[in-house]
Amino acid sequence: MNETSLRRSLVEIFRLAYARKLVDLLGGNASARLSNDEVLITPTSMPKILIKPQSIVKIRLDGTIISGSNPSSEWRMHVGIYKARNDAKFILHTHPPNILALSRAGLKIDLSLSEAISYVGEVVEVPYLKPGSAELANAVSKAVSRRGVTAVILRNHGLVTLGSTPYEALNRAEVLEDLAYITLISNCSSK
């Protein structure tokens, strides 16, 4: 994909994530690897429905802004993942309510349901760390350093999914959110 189509794809999956209630109006972020040293990332504090391809910020892996302004406050986490995983092409960070409820309740998603595991891969969890912090970026980067890991639950914060396409990253978030809902309902009805 060229830069223009990557920008359009980021806008589209972000709008789909908003429509699916995986993020609120100002929360969450998405990025795409443009080259070995350049990343496209959504801007901070911009309503999801207003993001346009030209709103996407281009940064280097060291955080230097190439074009645009004000990348997501989670840019450190995104570039850390790209540094840890050369195969990571797209990253989606969401705040799915069912996953947050499970995390808050101390429960784990049941990945044995349906063919979910074939869509998702390995899911790991990191403890709560301040959003946007270097500590969170380091913890997530370390968590995804194993090849099979495609999703990281950020305890009491949200979810990060990786994909070879933006739709794969979004699908992983959707599947995990659906499984979290099923797990919650199952736990409520069994008590």
Rank of each mutant, 00 (worst) to 15 (best):
P53Y: 02
H78T: 06
S45M: 15
W75P: 03
R146I: 14
S186L: 12
I59T: 08
Y181Q: 10
N2Y: 06
P47G: 07
I56T: 10
V160W: 02
P53R: 07
E125Y: 09
G163A: 07
I49E: 13
T4S: 15
T4E: 15
A30W: 05
M77N: 01
A30K: 01
K21H: 12
S186H: 14
L6T: 09
R33G: 10
K58P: 08
C188P: 06
K191G: 03
Y18S: 08
R8A: 15
I66T: 09
S112H: 13
N70P: 04
L176A: 06
S9F: 07
H93Q: 11
D87L: 06
L111Q: 12
S5G: 01
T161V: 05
N138P: 02
A19P: 03
L162V: 13
I153E: 03
I51K: 03
N86H: 15
G27A: 15
D178G: 08
A180V: 04
V152M: 00
Y167A: 02
K89S: 08
L10F: 10
V120P: 01
N29A: 03
V175Y: 00
V79R: 11
T161I: 04
I91D: 07
L100Y: 05
I51T: 10
G158E: 12
A173N: 00
K48E: 05
S73C: 07
S5Y: 01
S186I: 07
S55C: 12
R155P: 00
P71W: 02
S5L: 10
Y18M: 08
S72V: 14
R172V: 06
S9G: 10
T183F: 06
